[in-house]
Structure formats: C-alpha cells, structure tokens
Simulated assay, not measured.
Amino acid sequence: MSAQRKDDHVRLAMEQQHAHSGRNQFDEVSFVHHALAGIDRPDVSLATSFAGISWRAPLYINAMTGGSAKTGAINRDLAIAARESGVAIASGSMHAYFRDPSCADTFRVLRRENPDGFVLANVNATASVDDARRAVDLLRADALQIHLNTAQETAMPEGDRSFGSWGPQIGKIVAAVGVPVIVKEVGNGLSRQTVQALRDLGVQAADLSGRGGTDFARIENGRRELADYAFLHGWGQSTAACLLDAQDVGLPVLASGGVRDPLDVARALALGARAVGSSGGFLRTLLEGGVPALVARITTWLDQLAALQTMLGARTPADLVHCDLLIQGALRSFCADRGIDTRRLARRSGCGEVLHETTGGRR
C-alpha cells in the first residue's frame, strides 16, 4: 500500500502541475528598478551559506519521492540532474523505508548517483531517533530534513491524528543525529511563531514551504473515496507571506512552494531566504523531457539568477536582501494584519549604492 501511495502522489502531483493557473503571491512582490544599480557580471557569485552549510548556488531540488520501483527510478534521475548541475538535493519522506527496508535502494540511489553532492535525508516528526539516524546513514546525508504536514495527515485516509509529540521529538532528533537539521513544511507554510519554536528547539534552519506549489492536502483528498476534505485545499500561508512573517526571527530560512522561475528565486532571496527549492516544476520537467531537460532547466535558472543579480547590483544572493521591494495586493493586507511594515522594504536602497556613488553621494 505504501508503494502504491507513493506512485499515487506522483500522479496526483502532476495533475496539479497541469492544472495550475500560473499565478501566486510571488506576483505581489516586485523590485524597485534602479537603472544605475547594475554591476559587472564577473563580480557576481551564486554561493550561499547558512547554519555552517555552504552551497555553490542558492537553489536545491527539494523533497519529492521514493519508496517504490517507479519512484526509485525518479530519484535516480533527480540525483543525476543534481550531480550534473551542482545543486543540493533532498530525498522524499523515508518513512516507507522504515516500514519496509527492502525499498532502501529507492532512496540510496540518491547518493550512489551523486557521490560528492550535498544530499539531505527526509523523515517525519514522528520518526524515532534511531530511525532518523538510519535515514542519515543510508544516504550518508549531509543534513536531515524533518517535514511537518498536519494538513496532509488530516486529509490522508490512513494519516496520523496525534500531533502533540512532534515538537519534543524534533528536539530529541536535533540533539542526536550529528548533522544539521532543517525542518520544513510540505506546502502549507511555517508561521513566525512556528519558526520561533523551531529556533528554540535547536533546529539549524527552517524551510518555509508555503502554499502555491503542490497541495498535499488536495492530493490526499484525491485518494479518499468521497473526496470529502476539499475544504483543506489551499490551506495555510503562501511562501512569500511566510518569508515576510519570519523576518528577524534569528533562524536561517529557506524557501520553497510555488517557485516557478528565476525571478521567484530572486524574490524569495530578497525576502530573506538563504536558498530556494523547487519540487513539482522540476519533476514535471524530468517526466516530460528526461534528465537532459532538467539539467538544462536548472542550469538556465542559475544563469538567469546571476543575470538578475547583475542587474540589481547584488554581488551575492545574500545581497538581494538590500534591494527595494514593493508588496502589493492580498500580500500587503496579510502584512498589515500581522503587523509587518512593508514600507521599510521599499526603502532599503541597497540596490541603489552604485547610483549613490555615481551621483557623488547626492540623493
């Protein structure tokens, strides 16, 4: 049943990809254009670092799948694409491996095909400390993702209904696994209060993974005989909203969920993410065009991100947090209700330093 569920997830996720309207709240974030802010392309670096982790680019292939023969083949291809493009990669939930060790190779292939890359293992918040260590050991993982998915579990016919132990268990895993721990949502977002709680548990980073990409509550509802949990479709906050909500919490944040192109990557970085992940869009590219198409897409994204940094005057991805941003629409209303001052984002002026120098310091 677990293998069939994994295959169902891929099928239903692809149906969502084809049905997406194409718009999400990243469209309510725009850069203020400073025409003299540009720098020289050779001065631009894509390198990023957070929580003692250093990546050559602020982009990663986020958690997707594993646990069946079909999804094992997908993981193999994803690992090859990560190796060829030089980006980090996370496994899908390894709970299936804990229940059935015979499916280990559907996850282990991520390391076999990508022996020198940065690989993250992935477990849920109910995993025992021993299972978390097994996951890390199986992949020789450089870090561990723990995913939070209460909306998905609620809609899942066979899902968990006991969530009270998740926080304390995360703390135990963090203290025991010996690699950095990144806690992520699966598409419903992490609120400011949640990020603060994760910081206090000793987590090294949080992947906000907001609404706008694959909707796992919708996927699980699609597996229900009566599809009677449709009221959970679209639950949670968007990735852009979560990034605004989590500013200045004191924990490095990553962004995923609804990332469609290099401009969304730049927007997320400008809103404070240290790196940006994609799942559904990359999976669709892989299934439709194979490994060469996915490698080409990731490579193009990285080149276009460097072009955006050049135009915006950001020598590193981290420098994008100094760029002036305009927040509009429903996202601005969210900020008003949550007490977030969007005006300061429009006046950060870091991307205008070249203009400042060119005019001799006059404003």
Rank of each mutant, 00 (worst) to 15 (best):
G222S: 06
R260C: 07
A240H: 10
Y229F: 10
S278H: 02
A266P: 05
D264V: 08
V249G: 03
R224P: 02
G257E: 07
F231H: 13
S279Y: 01
L244E: 01
D245I: 01
G257M: 08
A273G: 10
S238M: 02
W235N: 04
G250H: 02
L287Y: 12
F282V: 03
A275R: 06
P262D: 15
G257A: 09
H233F: 01
R224S: 10
V265L: 14
W235I: 14
P252D: 08
R260S: 07
P252H: 05
L283K: 03
W235E: 10
D245H: 08
R274L: 09
D248G: 09
L244N: 01
D245G: 01
S278P: 00
H233S: 05
D248H: 14
P262F: 05
G222C: 03
L251N: 13
A270N: 08
N221W: 08
T239A: 00
R267V: 00
A275L: 03
L226K: 12
P262I: 00
D261K: 06
D264S: 09
D248S: 14
G234W: 02
G281P: 07
L269T: 01
A255W: 07
A230N: 11
L244M: 05
D264A: 04
A275G: 05
G277P: 12
L244D: 00
R223T: 12
L232C: 08
S279I: 00
V253I: 13
R260L: 05
L263H: 12
S279T: 13
F282R: 03
G280D: 08
D228I: 01
L254E: 14
A270D: 11
G280C: 05
G281F: 12
Q247Y: 00
G236P: 13
A275W: 03
R224G: 10
A246N: 15
S278M: 13
L251Y: 12
A246Q: 12
S238P: 01
R224H: 09
V259H: 15
S278R: 01
L232N: 05
L254P: 04
A227L: 00
G258D: 11
V249T: 04
D264W: 02
T239R: 03
A273I: 15
S238I: 03
W235R: 03
N221V: 03
Q247E: 12
L283N: 02
F282N: 02
A255M: 07
L287Q: 15
D264Q: 02
A255E: 13
A270G: 09
A255Q: 11
Y229W: 10
A241N: 06
V253H: 04
V276W: 15
D248V: 04
V265S: 15
D264Y: 09
T285Y: 06
L283R: 03
L232D: 04
Q247K: 11
W235V: 15
S278T: 13
R284L: 06
L251W: 12
L251A: 12
V265P: 15
T239I: 11
A270V: 06
V253W: 08
D261C: 12
G236N: 07
D245Y: 02
H233E: 09
A246D: 14
A266S: 07
A273W: 06
A255R: 10
G272R: 01
